[in-house]
Design a protein around this nucleic acid. Structure first.
Lengths: 200, 200
DNA sequence: CAAAAACTACCGACCGGTAGGTAGTTTTTG
DNA sequence: CAAAAACTACCTACCGGTCGGTAGTTTTTG
């Protein structure tokens, strides 16, 4: 983590996130990243120490950006089910944010050498998401059910998010919607059941 | 797809599935695969055309094996919720089957050049799983709810399976169990709700 | 204030290493 | 003995990374 971020370094980081998101860690070459940034490979080393450090810098960038995005989704909307707005934002986010695509691609199967550093950061990211969901759930149902139930729903929600991530990667938008609706319905049913509202 | 499978080719395929599962397509070298099979790299070419063909052969192997395993899980047990036994088998299967680990690793983010061939095969695999689930669901609830509801539950189940796949890859066994239980509960609640049993 | 020194960003050329793949030869085997 | 399968040796291409050097800007300093 360096102090200042010059414009030139910014261009390098933007090129890197694009290439890493498209081709993965091993598949993205420094020459390719440099070309995308409009310079030669050797010039990269004026800004970064090596490929690993570049990857980690991009990773921290992506974590910060996507973490904030998720948090804003939870703050932004209190309508609907807890965490619903975030899930419904994922499809557009996947299309728009290279950092998000980068995270999805590199988090499930990270470069072996950097496994531990990445695991830690991603863990924090998911924990924050879980905390946001749990808070929204408490706001939604109050004291209606136990901590045990809240924990279970938290696990289910995180599973739901992972499931949607997978859908983004390898099935099209139409089936993403279908899966999203199906999972939202399960979640809605279960919450309703616990709350004791029987609206049918 | 070749005609006969000699013992030597079998050893090569077994070595390949192990290496591909551990290191992915790009990360697994032909030299490594050959060494694992007890021969030199050049000798591989007595059995295979090139790396892509080897990968595809392993992929078809894995599809056949894991497809049959899944099918047997559905045939084997009619107790519990539809598809429950398969989900509960995944953790042990992940530990035991290199072919399963291979599929999980390579299906979400396949080698770019082989994308289309793989997509097709994996699609068939998931469709069969969905068919098995739908059949089990129909056996479980009879005519109790509409085709529309069955479709929705099917989407949810496939999402659940993907979610468990992700859990296998990047979180430990303990949290796998937690996620599994949470998702099973959602599914159980939803089915119970549709069937009209209110057991609380 | 101007000359010197230092710094920034870049480049072409090259290095050691490794990848997938090929050619030609020897060994194994039915 | 011939075909199959193994070997050694080698090739080209690309990888991450280093080196020496250069043009332009900024800072230091007599």
């Amino acid at each position: 983590m360096l102090s200042t971020t010059t414009p030139a370094l910014r261009r390098v980081l933007n090129a890197a996130v694009a290439q890493f998101a498209r081709h993965g860690y091993e598949g993205a070459s420094l020459a390719g990243i440099a070309a995308y940034a409009g310079i030669r490979k050797a010039s990269l080393y004026s800004h970064i120490k090596n490929k690993d450090a570049l990857f980690l810098a991009v990773f921290e960038d992506a974590l910060k950006i996507e973490s904030q995005f998720a948090h804003e989704c939870f703050e932004h909307s209190n309508t609907g089910l807890p965490g619903q707005y975030y899930c419904e934002s994922l499809l557009a986010r996947y299309a728009d944010s290279e950092h998000f695509r980068f995270l999805l691609r590199t988090s499930y199967i990270p470069p072996e050498s950097l496994f531990h550093e990445l695991q830690e950061g991603y863990e924090t990211y998911m924990q924050q998401l879980l905390a946001d969901f749990t808070a929204a759930l408490r706001r939604h149902v109050g004291e209606a059910f136990s901590d045990q139930d809240a924990l279970t729903l938290g696990h289910a929600y995180m599973g739901m998010v992972d499931s949607l991530h997978v859908a983004l990667i390898y099935i099209g938008p139409s089936r993403f919607e279908a899966r999203l609706n199906a999972l939202e319905r399960l979640m809605g049913d279960s919450i309703a059941r616990l709350v004791g509202e029987r609206h049918d």
